[in-house]
Design a protein around this nucleic acid. Structure first.
Length: 900
RNA sequence: GGGAGCUUAGCUCAGUUGGUUCAGAGCAUCUGCCUUACAAGCAGAGGGUCACUGGUUCGAGCCCAGUAGCUCCCACCA
């Protein structure tokens, strides 16, 4: 078959992927082998593939494929996350487009639409992951709302409730007015925003009612706020108790502008005297600190906002207006009525919803909470002791700081898409937590229901019927299901102690982004210890954030996210994987540039051409002439074999440290530089000549090993080459082939290789500098005593286009001289020489060598060095000095010869 | 406000336990080459006072302290 000149990935990726699937090579079942397990960070069920996924999944695939080739039972479990907020938002938007308002639907109707939506779009992201070449065991695909999974989430809720971790509480939470749900602290993104700081004056109540007052009695008190619309919910003004300016105002009353609510002036050390005017308006319903102040000073709480961020009736004014519209209007009105003293530019931090990007409202609300402190303890310990290893380890600190100050987790969400909270309420507000209404009824009838703290003790509900019970409307935070992922994908909860969970759990490697270290990683560790009494994984590899080449985070709004599928189409999955991987050190941001994918494509092409070359060779049977030592091919083979072994060991070492990108670089240069540029050029027969079968077989063997090394990174082309270079059995694939043990490399052979490379390069450089054609054959003279084996000489002759290599006693006239190490060579010059360039180069080198020698001698002459340094170091230094002296001698000799 | 990290060639980054044969790689640049595997290529080359200032040491990108700049994470100064 004729192979095309350039590599064309079209069709090849899909063809091999299909073959692997047909042969069920991705599937894993428990057996005698050691397991190597990865659970995928489940992407959002309605998501589409972006750079982060591509990076993340490529790394996982590399780990999995490598483990598989190292003889482990590799199992990669894929799946998707129901992602309650974003999926619900998408379904709501879809319905709106159809002219359907969610509020007009029943819960059941809405969920029907949601499931339809997930059935339609839920598989897209998984298909895209397949396009990347990921070798997941697709039979294991799990969804966080599968029946078993759902039930497990509910049981965990009940269990934690019964253990006293989960409780109901009326507290200040983060409210997303767009999604109309509460959020956990982690779901709030703080951003710096340019705002205005408004200085507003509140009229003070005069001491004697309407009667006249003293001259020096202030009429107003001025406060500063960035949220003037919240004054409608003000229930106090607070100053610092020791603030001389306001001391005499404490205990008096002021009036909220526009609505004239009478509010007290109170004192609390919380207030910063230096900020603004030193007087603080207190709105307990809409600010965390104010809420705390309110509790302390028993202030009234007036909630002036509706759940969608519009002003509520309690605001009295601007009712129904959006909070930001209201802000504009109230500023106008305050100014008109003389309450606005001034407005300053001001930069502050504002919380945004991670999912909807809406500005978060702090709001007091009854929610379900999960206490984390106890669960955090073993989870923290496991990471700090490296029982679970973080790569890079700097994230240990981040983790520790969060775990040490962990706060209770708000787990309820005011949504329908998700796991519905298994709490059942009686008409009088008592409730029971149970898997079914029947069980809940039983508990309530036994008087085992609960009431909120405010309501006091529960009473017996012996007259209740099941119709009286109403299930909590809320669902659980998405992460409350994802934190069970590492064991529930093996039914660790729905079928405790089953063979699979026993075999695969704990998993080995988790690959994820540092952004979800709190959301997900920390919580999986906690739930792992809580429910499996064991860590969920051994290592966590944190990838970097993918940025564009200008360093900007990839985002839809910037439009700088590359079209991944388009690139896969254009360059092939291998090239895309290469492009992503080549610049992605763990934990550091990666700057992605399509050029890197081109580099990957070029690499594919290079490999493709190796295949073309090798397949084009005519092989001569039993041609033993190159097997004997002293032949060029024999040297080339021995050298490369050792180079390959050394490199393989280096790659193993790099993988052990999760240095995946450097490992790829190592394979890349091993193939491109050592194998193609050097080895193949060394053994390549003359045009039209056959190659002996020994060299040929060795070359095929090397190529196969190289493909195996590269396979985890670039699965498709390596499979193709593997199949093409030899007859393979029906069920023989590179992806299931095994790595052999690597023998120790012989450093002598490697350094011999380096030596001849240096000589060849020096000759090529001389030709280049002097405008000599690379093809014209020239003679090389080596100073007597230089040790070069016959094989080495043959290689040098071949690659440097020499007519002959001879020894010489003295200098050779009319020649270019050069040093390789301390060996002196002369290259025949076909034309008269101008020695000035050589002279200046020699002088430069000489100066360096003299300086070098001087520094070494200084060291050796230093008594402290000689007494303190190890004998090995000293021996090394002596050798350096000797080498340098020899070089200097040779250069001086040469300079003298030129001058003479 | 607290914490973590970064500052090495034009760009993006490696530099493991301190030893001028490690100051390196990949892109980019320059010079020759359309040499029957590959111009998506081949052969060469030139680029750096390793942020700044001190200190430890016989010796410092590498250790310590300080300075400046940048990045990220956490945090309830309106």
């Amino acid at each position: 078959m004729e192979l095309s000149k350039t590599f064309d990935p079209a069709g090849l990726d899909d063809r091999w992927y299909q073959r692997w699937m047909e042969e069920r090579l991705f599937e894993s079942k428990p057996d005698d082998r050691e397991p190597y397990t990865i659970v995928i960070p489940p992407p959002n069920v309605t998501g589409v593939l972006h750079m982060g996924h591509a990076l993340n999944n490529t790394i996982q695939d590399i780990c999995i494929r490598r483990a598989r080739m190292m003889g482990k039972n590799a199992c990669w479990v894929p799946g998707t996350d129901h992602a309650s907020i974003s999926t619900e938002a998408k379904v709501v938007a879809m319905l709106r487009e159809k002219g359907i308002d969610k509020r007009e639907l029943s819960r059941e109707e809405f969920l029907k639409y949601a499931w339809e939506w997930r059935d339609k779009y839920g598989g897209i992201i998984l298909k895209q992951i397949k396009k990347l070449g990921c070798s997941c065991d697709w039979n294991r695909t799990t969804f966080t709302m599968d029946d078993d999974y759902y039930r497990s989430v509910i049981r965990v809720f009940i269990d934690l409730y019964n253990k006293g971790y989960i409780y109901r509480g009326n507290k200040m939470i983060n409210w997303d007015p767009k999604a109309k749900t509460s959020l956990s602290d982690e779901e709030v993104i703080k951003k710096e925003v340019k705002s205005k700081l408004y200085f507003l004056r509140y009229k003070l109540e005069s001491l004697q009612g309407e009667a006249g007052n003293a001259q020096n009695e202030p009429e107003f008190i001025t406060i500063a706020t960035v949220r003037p619309e919240t004054i409608l919910g003000d229930t106090a003004i607070c100053v610092h108790p020791e603030d001389e300016r306001y001391k005499n105002l404490v205990g008096r009353f002021a009036f909220v502008p526009l609505i004239n609510r009478r509010i007290p002036v109170i004192a609390d050390e919380y207030v910063e005297r230096e900020f603004g005017t030193g007087a603080l308006k207190v709105t307990p319903a809409h600010d965390m600190n104010d809420y705390n102040l309110g509790l302390k000073h028993h202030l009234e709480v007036i909630d002036t906002l509706n759940d969608d961020g519009t002003m509520s009736a309690a605001a009295q004014l601007y009712v129904g207006q959006d909070r930001f519209e209201c802000r504009k209007n109230i500023v106008k009105d305050l100014e008109a009525q003389g309450h606005l003293v001034k407005a300053e530019d001001y930069t502050n931090q504002i919380g945004f919803s991670e999912r909807t990007d809406a500005v978060i409202e702090p709001r007091i609300s009854m929610q379900w909470w999960c206490s984390m402190k106890d669960m955090a303890k073993p989870a923290l310990e496991a990471v700090m002791s490296d029982d679970i290893k973080f790569y890079p380890s700097k994230f240990k600190t981040t983790y520790r700081l969060w775990m040490e100050s962990i706060r209770d987790w708000c787990i309820s969400r005011q949504l329908w898409w998700g796991h519905r909270i298994p709490a059942w309420f009686t008409p009088d507000g008592s409730f029971a937590v149970a898997e079914t209404a029947e069980e809940a009824l039983l508990l309530l009838n036994q008087g085992n229901g609960m009431r909120s703290k405010e309501q006091g003790q529960d009473t017996l509900h012996s007259t209740l019927t099941i119709q009286d019970l109403k299930q909590d409307e809320d669902v659980l935070d998405t992460w409350f299901s994802s934190w069970l992922w590492p064991f529930e994908v093996f039914k660790g909860l729905s079928n405790p102690g089953n063979e699979e969970v026993k075999y695969y759990y704990p998993t080995q490697t988790l690959v994820t982004a540092p952004e979800i270290i709190f959301f997900w990683v920390a919580r999986m560790i906690m739930s792992g210890f809580e429910y499996e009494k064991e860590k969920p994984f051994e290592q966590v590899y944190f990838t970097g954030i993918v940025r564009d080449k200008m360093g900007r985070k990839m985002s839809k709004s910037l439009g700088n996210s590359p079209d991944l599928l388009g690139m896969i189409e254009k360059y092939g999955a291998d090239a895309v994987r290469f492009g992503i991987l080549i610049s992605s050190p763990a934990g550091n941001d990666i700057l992605f540039d399509e050029k890197l994918v081109e580099q990957g494509r070029n690499f594919n092409n290079k490999i493709w051409n190796v295949l073309r070359l090798v397949k084009g060779w005519e092989v001569e049977e039993d041609l033993a002439k190159n097997q004997k030592s002293g032949s060029g091919n024999q040297f080339a083979i021995e050298w490369f074999e050792n180079r390959l072994n050394a490199s393989t060991q280096e790659i193993n070492r790099l993988f052990q440290q999760f240095d995946i990108s450097p490992a790829l670089k190592e394979v890349y240069s091993l193939i491109w530089d050592d194998f193609c540029s050097w080895y193949l050029e060394m053994i390549k027969p003359e045009f039209g000549q056959p190659i002996d079968d020994y060299s040929y077989n060795k070359t095929i063997e090397f190529l196969e090993q190289l493909m195996k090394l590269l396979h985890p990174f670039m699965p498709f082309i390596t499979e193709e080459v593997f199949q093409q270079i030899a007859e393979r059995g029906e069920d023989e694939f590179i992806m299931t082939s095994q790595y052999a043990d690597v023998p120790e490399a012989n450093p002598m052979l490697i350094s011999d290789g380096e030596k001849i490379k240096e000589i060849i390069t020096a000759i090529r450089d001389i030709r280049n500098r002097n405008g000599l054609k690379q093809k014209d054959k020239l003679a090389l003279y080596a100073s007597k005593g230089i040790e070069l084996g016959d094989g080495m000489k043959r290689i040098i002759s071949k690659l440097a286009m020499l007519s002959k290599i001879e020894e010489t006693e003295g200098d050779v006239e009319q020649s270019f001289s050069f040093l390789s190490g301390a060996d002196k060579f002369f290259l025949e010059s076909p034309k008269a020489l101008d020695s000035t360039e050589e002279k200046s180069r020699l002088e430069k080198d000489l100066a360096y060598q003299r300086g070098f020698l001087e520094s070494v001698m200084k060291k050796l002459g230093n008594e402290k060095f000689v007494s303190k340094a190890s004998p090995e170091v000293i021996k090394n230094e002596r050798q350096k000095a000797e080498d340098a002296r020899e070089k200097i001698r040779l250069m001086e000799e040469r300079l003298a010869a030129i001058a003479g």
